[in-house]
C-alpha cells in the first residue's frame, strides 16, 4: 500500500505547529497503524529528518499510551486503540490525517505527544481505595453482588487513554472520571471513600480545565473500551448524593 500522510508537526510546547505531508510506501495491510508510523520514522531518520514523536507502549491495546486522532476520530475508524488499528482499515492511495489529542488540559508536548498528567492528578485525588496493609484478607469475606461486580468491571476497563477528552467538543473528562468513580464506588472496598472520592475527583477534573458535559455522546463513541455514556449519569447521581451527605 502507498499512503499520503498529513501529520501534525510541532517542535515543542511553545512552538507553532502545522500539518506536514509525507508519502509512505510499502505499507502492508497487516501492519498496525503504529508500525506504519515506525516505517515513516525509519525513512525520516535515514533522510536525516526529525522523526514524528508519538506516544506508545504496550501495543496490545491495554496500556492507554497511544493517542492519535486519525481522520478526525480518536484512535481512528475502528473501536479500538491506535496500536490495535490495522492498515487494512484503509485503502491504497488514501490520504490520512493524523493529529494529537486536542484539549487545553492536554497541551501538546511535541508533534503527536500530549501531556496527560491531568488524568494522573484526577486519579491521585480519589481514584484509589485505602486498605490496611499486611496479610491479605480472605477474598470471600467481602461478598460482591454479581450485578455490582459486572458494573465495576465494565468501568475498570478504562485505560485512561484520553480518547473521550479528544473526541468531546468541550474537551470534557466526564467519561474518564465517571469510569474511575463508578468502578470504585459500587464496590464494598470503595465504600469508605465513596463520597469524598466523587467530590474530590470531580473538583480536580474541573480544576484541570476540562470542559463540562453536554451529553453529545462523542466520548462513548470514541472510547476504545466501550465505557458507556450512562456512566456519566451514574457519576452525576453519585455526586449529588455525596453533596447531600457531606457537609
Amino acid at each position: 500500500m502507498k499512503l499520503n500522510l498529513r501529520v501534525w508537526r510541532q517542535k515543542n510546547a511553545g512552538a507553532e505547529g502545522a500539518m506536514a505531508t509525507y508519502e509512505v510506501d510499502g505499507v502492508s495491510p497487516d501492519m498496525s497503524f503504529l508500525e506504519m508510523l515506525d516505517t515513516l520514522n525509519e525513512d525520516l531518520i535515514l533522510r536525516g529528518e526529525d522523526p514524528v514523536a508519538f506516544d506508545h507502549d504496550c501495543r496490545e491495546g491495554i496500556c492507554g499510551a497511544c493517542s492519535l486522532v486519525i481522520n478526525g476520530d480518536a484512535h481512528g475508524p475502528e473501536r479500538t486503540t491506535t496500536c490495535q488499528l490495522h492498515m487494512r482499515s484503509f485503502r491504497d492511495g488514501d490520504t490520512i490525517d493524523v493529529e494529537p489529542w486536542r484539549a487545553s488540559a492536554f497541551p501538546v508536548v511535541k508533534d503527536l505527544v500530549v501531556d496527560r498528567s491531568a488524568f494522573d492528578r484526577i486519579i491521585r485525588s480519589g481514584g484509589y481505595v485505602s486498605v490496611p496493609t499486611g496479610s491479605a484478607p480472605e477474598a470471600h469475606a467481602t461478598p460482591v453482588p454479581k450485578a455490582d461486580a459486572d458494573f465495576a468491571f465494565e468501568h475498570a476497563e478504562c485505560i485512561g487513554c484520553g480518547a473521550c477528552v479528544a473526541a468531546c467538543p468541550n474537551g470534557s473528562a466526564m467519561l474518564f472520571t465517571s469510569a474511575k468513580v463508578n468502578h470504585l464506588n459500587v464496590l464494598p472496598q470503595g465504600a469508605p471513600e465513596r463520597e469524598t472520592r466523587v467530590l474530590d475527583m470531580v473538583a480536580q477534573m474541573d480544576a484541570e480545565g476540562f470542559g463540562g458535559c453536554t451529553l453529545t455522546g462523542e466520548c462513548a463513541t470514541a472510547c476504545p473500551k466501550g465505557i458507556p455514556l450512562p456512566s456519566i449519569a451514574a457519576m452525576n447521581k453519585e455526586w449529588l448524593r455525596a453533596r447531600r451527605k457531606v457537609k
Binding site: D55, S117, A118, W239
Partner: peptide
C-alpha cells in the same frame, strides 16, 4: 518526551473546589 505518568508537567489551572456552584456538575 515521556509524559504519561510523569508528575505535574502542567499544574491545574485552579485550586480544586468541592463547592456546588464552582463545579460543572
Amino acid at each position: 518526551a515521556s509524559v504519561k505518568g510523569t508528575a505535574s508537567a502542567r499544574p491545574p489551572s485552579r485550586t480544586p473546589s468541592r463547592g456546588f456552584w464552582s463545579s460543572t456538575i
